[in-house]
Amino acid sequence: MAEKILQVKDLQTSFFTDAGEVRAVNSISFDLEAGKVLGIVGESGSGKSVTAYSILQILSFPGKVIGGQILFHGKDLLTCSEREMQEIRGDKISIIFQDPMTSLNPVYSVGNQIVEAIRLHTDRRGKEARDRAIELLDLVGINDPERRIRQYPHELSGGMRQRVMIAMALACEPDILIADEPTTALDVTIQAQILELINELQRKLNMAVIMITHDLGIIADICDDIIVMYAGSVCERGSTDDIFYDSRHEYTKGLLASIPKREKSEELLTPIAGTPLDLLNMPAGCPFAPRCDACMKICLSERPPERLIGGQHYASCWINDLHELQKQQQELEAE
């Protein structure tokens, strides 16, 4: 098995707002293996971005990591100084966002900004830095990089800007690239180009990628492993096939049933009833209980623990315990 370069253990992140504590990430654990693509999927507000920002410690006020460990090559990032974190960000772990315009400065040329990223994270200076910038633009599939390098962000299309962001994120060949909804603002043919690019670079540079998205299609398409989040918790995690073909959490099942398949159908979809949780008023039991069709008494009072289903497949749903008990019962009866 590949090295686990990132291990998140019982991570808890809250926002301390005037209205009270918002438990955006509520004790989650997962691993990222070297050279793999891990998808984080969940609906809006489920805590995907906050998880990423917690790893990089770029949370906005009033957010704070209040518990857990984030082990990067075995070292806990939560014990690092801001100086050490600065080195890790961009050097070892890079992030790209949904809207490249928020991270690109409109008054500097594209080349200027890539060169700046290179100077910040490597020893390259002057012509050497500029050559590297051109090399990076070429790497991310931008034609005619010598010309593009002189252009300003507004002169580029959305897809082109996202390529520039990826080039900057790769300036120092990071171990981990976190992509937070990188194609949500793009059209599907451009999205296909960007996803292909990320996949290709991941293999070429042997990076690990954390792909954050609400789109189950993207997850199915490019991820090796998946974690499914709901209301700040991880419901289920495992290989892509585990999640799609052997789901063991009612939320995962509900999510898969609610998306239209590629067919015209007279049949209605199977939506998940109700609306997402108010994170200020977390229920005592399973966070999904208020919307769950299979909800039992225990689900309302106690939070389901994470159980190993098999291999690397984990799920937090009381029904798995029920099945386990039934199996034991049957074995006893058989004896």
Binding site: V188, T189, A192, E196, G217, I218, I219, A220
Partner: peptide, 22 residues
């Protein structure tokens, strides 16, 4: 062909037609 299909087996089996440029 660019539409990501939320089914890993179908996704692995399908071939994408990539368009150049914008």
């Amino acid at each position: 062909s660019a539409v990501p299909i939320p089914d890993p087996r179908t996704a692995r089996a399908s071939k994408r037609i990539m368009l150049e440029g914008d």
